[in-house]
Amino acid sequence: MSIWNELLAPKAQSLNTTQLAAGFVAPLLDQGLIALDGEESAHFLHGQLTNDVEHLGADEARLAGYCSPKGRMLASFLMWRSGSTLLLQLPREIQAAVQKRLSMFVLRAKTKLSDASEMPEHEVVIGLGGGLAEAVLQTWFEPLPARPYSKISHPLGTVIRLADALGAARYQWLMSKDVARTVLPELAERLTVGDAAAWHLSAIHAGVPQIGKATQEQFVPQMVNFELLGGVNFKKGCYPGQEIVARSQYLGKLKRRTTLVTIQDPAAVAGAEVFATADPEQPCGMIVNTAPNGRGGIDALVEMKLAAIEAASVRLGSAEGTALEFHPMPYVLDALDV
C-alpha cells in the first residue's frame, strides 16, 4: 500500500460518523489475503470453516469463521473466488499463524495455500462508503454489486459490496498499483479521505466484527453475532468445533451477544474486559473491535451477557471504570438467548 502513502496519506484523517455517512475513502492497511489454489480447494475449506464454501458463487462474497475444536473462533474471514482461486481476507497480524494452521490439515487434498497480499491485482485495497460512494464508483463501474456481499470482477479490479453502515452502502475495491495511480487522486477530490481507522469505524457501525490476535479463541461465533451476519451455515457438514457451535444454536447454552457502544477512553482496546455494575465481581464481556470516533473517544463492538446489554450499565476494566454508552445495532439482536 505504499502507493496510498505516496498519494493520499497526507490527506488522510480520523473521521467521525457524520463524515463517514456523507462519503469517504480509506485504506485497508492491516488486512492480508490467503489464496488457495487447486481443484480440491473448495472441498478442503468447506470442511474447515463455518460457512458453505463449495457453493460460493463467482459473483458473491461470504463471511466465515475458523474455529478451534472447542468452537472458539481462531479467525474470521471475508472469502470470495477469483477465477479458480479462493481468497480469505483477515488481519495481517494473524495471517501467518492461521495460514500455517490451515496448511497442517491439507494432508492429501489437492490445494496449496499462499500469501496473496502482494499479488499485482491486490496491491492496493481501499474501502469506500457513505451517501456519495455509489455515484463516485459509477465513474468506473456500471453496474455496481447490487446487494451486500455481492461482487464484480472488472479490468480495473474487484469490487465487493459489504454490509451497509450509517444508512449507506460500503464497498471494498482491490486493484493494482497502476490503477491506483489513476483513480486515487480523483477519489480524494470527491470523497473525504480517512485513515485506516476510519474503515474500522465503518465496520463497527455495520455491526461486523473481526477476530484479531487479542480475541482469538474467546468467542463462539454466535457471541459475536456471526450467524446473524450470514457467517455460519447450520446445514453444511462438519468442521472443527461444529458440534459446539450447533449445540449453542439449538440448545441455548449461551446468553451473550455483541453490541455497539461508545467509550470516552481512547485507551480502550480489543480484548479488554467490561463489567456490569449489577455484578461487579466478574467481567460480563469483552471488547471485540475499536476505532477512534473522531470525537475524542472510541466506538466499539463489545461482546457481553444479554442481561448486561438490557441493563445498559456497564463499565470498562472494572465496575468503577469508564461507562459504556449503548447504541442501537444496525440489525436485530434476536431473542435466541445463545
Rank of each mutant, 00 (worst) to 15 (best):
I34W: 02
A35I: 01
A35R: 02
D37Q: 12
D37P: 00
D37L: 03
G38S: 11
G38A: 09
G38W: 06
E39L: 09
E39D: 15
E39T: 14
E40W: 03
S41C: 03
S41H: 05
A42H: 00
A42Q: 01
H43N: 12
H43Q: 14
H43D: 14
F44R: 05
F44K: 06
F44H: 06
F44L: 07
L45A: 04
L45T: 01
L45M: 11
L45R: 02
H46F: 06
G47V: 05
Q48I: 07
Q48M: 15
T50W: 08
N51T: 11
D52I: 03
D52P: 08
V53P: 03
V53E: 08
V53Q: 13
V53H: 07
E54M: 14
E54A: 12
H55T: 15
L56N: 10
L56S: 12
L56D: 12
L56G: 10
L56E: 10
G57K: 14
G57I: 00
G57Y: 00
A58I: 08
A58P: 04
D59H: 10
D59M: 05
D59V: 02
D59R: 08
E60W: 00
A61F: 01
R62I: 12
R62E: 10
R62G: 09
R62Y: 03
G65Q: 06
G65T: 07
G65N: 05
C67A: 13
C67Y: 04
C67L: 04
S68V: 05
S68A: 06
K70I: 04
G71D: 10
G71Q: 10
G71M: 11
G71A: 12
M73T: 04
L74W: 02
L74C: 04
L74I: 02
L74K: 09
L74Y: 02
A75N: 08
A75T: 08
A75R: 03
S76G: 13
S76A: 13
S76H: 15
S76C: 04
S76W: 04
S76L: 13
F77W: 09
F77G: 10
L78A: 07
L78H: 07
L78W: 05
L78G: 07
M79F: 12
M79P: 01
W80L: 11
S82E: 15
S82H: 13
S82Y: 06
S82A: 13
S82R: 14
G83P: 06
G83V: 12
S84N: 13
S84C: 00
S84K: 13
T85H: 09
T85V: 14
L86Y: 14
L86H: 12
L87I: 14
L88I: 07
Q89A: 15
Q89H: 06
L90N: 09
P91H: 10
P91L: 05
R92F: 01
R92T: 13
R92V: 12
E93I: 07
I94N: 03
I94S: 04
Q95T: 04
A96C: 01
A97E: 15
A97W: 00
V98E: 01
V98M: 02
